[in-house]
Simulated assay, not measured.
Amino acid sequence: MCRWLVYSGSPLLLEEILYKPVHSLIDQSRHARLGVDTTNGDGFGVGWYGVGEVPGLFRAVGPAWSDRNLHELAAHVSSPLLLAHVRSSTGTAVQQTNCHPFRFGRWLWMHNGSIARFATLKRDLMLAVDAELFPAMEGSTDSELMFFLALTFGLRDDPPRAVARMVGLVEAVASRHQVAEPVQMTVATSDGSTVWAFRYSTRHESRSLFYSTEIRSLRLLHPEIPALRLISDESRMIVSEPLGDLPGAWNEVPESTCSVVAGGEDLIHAFHPEPPA
């Protein structure tokens, strides 16, 4: 599987988020604690919002822990909204176009999990992608296909419903092919102003996902940490696994939910797939 994180809040250098925490995403690329695989070395990617309409994107096929270009970039790029991912392939090729996050216009998308027996379901799912969107698909992963199905079903207008329709379709196609428990996912997507994060699996035993405690509460819990005074109240993180062991800093995202982060407001809604009509 994979590990990922989202940061939203005060502009920070990427290295402050990717490298400096005790159990940073770079550390998780070698020493994941809660993932299916300890090592996530089948490529990585970073997407960030800053100057311009389209988010920046840097992806590579090597392991994140040894990529000098990533380290150099992280020391010089600052962003108020960052999505980062380290990959452990579930069977598709290790190539740049299969590295997360995936981008379409202002939208970024990344995924941890899999579609069971993807090779069996792939053709039917591909045919459901909008013909105008299809040429923009570059890779061969189930994760990118999930993204383009969500775009087909209205991600740009109503992300929760679009993802619900996407999952509903995957489960319906899997049922026709007698594939049990097809969906396993934690997904993050953003348009540059709002972040949506989903934790769902058909068997209701989803991969780990956590969100950070609000900064004001953390300042009260840990007045001894100066860095907490430098981050704005609206700063938030969503992570596959905690970036350290600071007491009170992390909370588990509930099973079968959609979390929304926008301007420091945190909302968590129940998530249910929507089967095709």
Rank of each mutant, 00 (worst) to 15 (best):
G47M: 04
L13N: 01
G52H: 10
H71L: 14
A32W: 04
R68I: 12
G50W: 01
Y19Q: 11
H23I: 09
V94N: 14
S88Q: 13
Y19G: 03
G56F: 04
P21G: 04
E53T: 15
L57Q: 03
L82M: 12
S66N: 13
S29H: 03
R68K: 13
S78I: 02
E53W: 13
H31L: 14
S24T: 06
W48H: 00
G62P: 04
G50M: 03
L25C: 07
L70S: 01
F58L: 15
Y49M: 08
L18Y: 02
I26R: 04
S79F: 02
A32M: 09
G47N: 04
D27L: 08
W48T: 00
W65T: 05
T39N: 08
H85R: 05
A32S: 14
E16H: 14
H76N: 12
A93F: 11
N40V: 06
H71E: 13
Q28C: 09
A74W: 01
E53G: 11
R68A: 14
L12R: 15
H85E: 04
L70R: 02
Y19K: 07
A75F: 08
H71W: 12
H76D: 09
L81E: 00
T39L: 10
P11V: 09
G41F: 08
G56Y: 02
H23F: 14
G62C: 14
F58Q: 11
L13G: 02
G47L: 03
L73V: 12
P80E: 08
A74D: 06
L83V: 09
G50I: 01
T92D: 13
L13E: 05
V46D: 00
R33L: 15
G56L: 05
A75Y: 09
S10W: 01
H71V: 13
T92A: 12
A32T: 09
L13T: 01
L34A: 15
V77M: 04
S66W: 08
D37L: 15
S88C: 14
V94I: 14
V77S: 04
H23L: 13
G43M: 05
W48C: 02
L25G: 02
G45P: 01
V51Y: 12
G47H: 03
S78L: 08
L83D: 00
A84M: 06
L73M: 15
T39Q: 13
V61M: 10
P11S: 11
V54G: 05
A32G: 12
